[in-house]
């Protein structure tokens, strides 16, 4: 018998089985609460305002800012180039390609960090990668980038350089813009861990 017929005899029944059984939609990949807690504690999900400002100034194409506040708040003020995906509509199909991708860094932000952290938590549960949170939210952004406080002149050079950068970046990115500050005081800032490696492998031939 010809090899082609052997192949057909084996592979057609297998194809019929696949066509007949329902597809497996359960995902063995699940984030355990311990994993999530560890992740939160390590602060790995944060981008600092300085990092974001750097990427904005250098027009880094790998950065996507996502404003998770309501449409009204977005209209009033948003960071340059940010897109608006309100937290309440995050799971709609139209946003799936934005939040489930492996090309760019998505950075969620809200006024504080409560809503952006919730958005991040959602995407983690779904197993999506490359989503991050702007450390301290817009409140802290205003404090550090838009109205930076000058360090004392005795500070080490790095501090002065950081201040100069922030001042320059603040002006370049529309300094002086007024942000509706939320009533809550700026929360204590979590520490930032080094950027974790991208987990979904990069393909391409």
């Amino acid at each position: 018998m010809k090899p082609r017929l052997y192949l057909a005899l084996i592979i057609i029944p297998l194809g019929l089985i696949l066509a007949a059984v329902p597809a497996n939609t359960t995902h063995p990949y699940k984030l355990s609460p311990q994993d999530l807690l560890e992740h939160v504690n390590s602060g790995m999900q944060y981008f600092s305002p300085d990092e974001v400002a750097h990427m904005l100034v250098s027009k880094d194409p790998s950065l996507v800012l996502i404003d998770v506040r309501s449409e009204d708040e977005y209209e009033k003020f948003h960071l340059p180039g940010a897109i608006n995906i309100p937290l309440s509509s995050m799971l709609e199909d139209q946003w799936k390609d934005y939040i489930n991708q492996d090309l760019r860094y998505n950075v969620f932000y809200s006024n504080g960090t409560v809503n952006s952290n919730q958005a991040w938590m959602l995407t983690r549960q779904l197993g999506y990668q490359n989503n991050y949170v702007l450390q301290g939210g817009l409140n802290y952004w205003v404090e550090t980038i838009i109205n930076p406080t000058a360090p004392p002149s005795t500070s080490p050079d790095e501090e002065i350089a950081k201040y100069d950068f922030r001042k320059g970046a603040g002006q370049a990115l529309g300094g002086g813009a007024v942000v509706e500050s939320s009533t809550q005081p700026a929360p204590a800032l979590p520490k930032i861990a080094p950027r974790p490696k991208k987990k979904r492998v990069e393909g391409g031939c």
Binding site: I11, L18, N24, H27, P28, Y29, L103, R200, G203
Partner: peptide
């Protein structure tokens, strides 16, 4: 064909999560 059939069967048996496999954009 072998890869398609094999991967779908492995997914049925929960041996591999096809959502985590790289799909070229």
């Amino acid at each position: 064909l072998v890869a398609m059939v094999g991967l779908l069967f492995m997914s049925l048996f929960n041996w591999i999560d096809l959502d985590m496999v790289y799909i070229n954009p």
